[in-house]
């Protein structure tokens, strides 16, 4: 068994009375893409800052690439790449100049390496474009290039695809999969529930606590213990009221033009139909739905 790339044990960080990260423990193995999912302010970025050695833990420890992340932060940072959501790329420099500048920070001055990095992120041929002229999706690729110019073994991505459209997001993820296939380990934070589906394993964080970490499939099987139904009816509120009272219905919610319910395993469509019919609600259609990571999060958040 190879050693984990990240080994976090009871990691905690307090700011005054506020516990930003609360006894978090997890491991990330070589070549894995692990997602860190949670709302703004839940402690995702604080965790990454500790893993990069930018912030001292209040208690607990983090071993990253075999080094203590805080006491040996220089060794960690020489081997890890970091792409931040709020990363400053110089707008008045060209694509090439930005890469040369940041490469220099890591002591990389070989033009061939810069060229290779550009090819990796699909920006070859755009060397002389001013950064301010790039679309949001292409800026993100440049930011990724800057984060991997020193060939890190581990890459931290902090909300890398906020604000780009789904096409650019998918293109970006293709690059991430290519990097992972080359053996780079990736820890990516996101607050998009659907984006977490791209990861091998997903950790769910809320109020500083890591609530669970596993593959999307296992999370859904474990924390959405039932069948999802989507029920179309004109009488949404009456239908919701009836379903909330129906034994075996674990969760019922309004979803725009239909109702979405999660029922205990084994409870069939017929029970739902009868429950609605008994209160005079007519069903236009009822169909099985798929559980989502949002369902998982809602289950976990209830504690």
């Amino acid at each position: 068994m190879p050693l984990p790339v990240i080994y976090v044990d009871e990691l905690t960080r307090k700011f005054g009375d506020f516990t930003a990260v609360d006894h978090v423990s997890f491991e990330v193995n070589p070549g894995e893409i692990v997602g860190y999912l949670g709302p703004n302010g839940c402690g995702k970025t604080t965790t990454i800052r500790m893993l990069l050695g930018l912030l001292a833990p209040t208690s607990g420890s983090a071993i990253v690439l075999g080094f203590d992340s805080f006491r040996q932060s220089e060794q960690v940072r020489a081997r890890a790449g970091y792409m931040s959501q709020k990363f400053a790329i110089y707008d008045d420099l060209t694509v090439w100049e930005n890469l040369v500048f940041y490469g220099g920070v890591y002591g990389i001055n070989d033009p061939a390496r810069i060229q290779e990095t550009l090819a990796q992120v699909g920006l070859s041929g755009h060397e002389t474009v001013l950064t301010r002229e790039l679309s949001a999706g292409w800026r993100q690729r440049l930011a990724l290039g800057i984060a991997i110019v020193h060939r890190p073994q581990l890459l931290f991505l902090d909300e890398p695809t906020s604000g780009v459209d789904p096409n650019a997001r998918r293109a970006f993820w293709d690059l991430i999969y290519d990097l992972a296939a080359q053996g780079v380990t990736i820890l990516v934070t996101t607050h998009y529930m659907d984006e977490a589906e791209y990861c091998h394993r997903v950790g769910m964080m809320r109020d500083g606590k890591l609530l669970a970490m596993d593959t999307p499939l296992v999370l859904k099987e474990r924390y959405v213990p039932g069948q999802v139904y989507e029920i179309y009816t004109a009488a949404l509120l009456a239908g919701l009221g009836a379903l909330e009272q129906t034994p075996g219905v674990l969760r019922a919610a309004l979803a725009g033009d239909h109702l979405r319910v999660i029922v205990e395993q084994g409870l069939g469509e017929q029970t739902l139909k009868s429950a609605l019919a008994a209160t005079g609600v007519t069903i236009a259609s009822i169909q099985k739905g798929e559980p989502t990571l949002e369902d998982v999060f809602l289950t976990l958040a209830k504690g």
Binding site: R206, L237, L254, A255, F297
Partner: peptide, 17 residues
């Protein structure tokens, strides 16, 4: 944008109501 899924769920229930 960026809010807790629990809060998001609550907010949507209000809007749909």
């Amino acid at each position: 944008t960026g809010v807790d899924p629990v809060t998001r769920q609550d907010f949507w229930q209000l809007i749909i109501h």
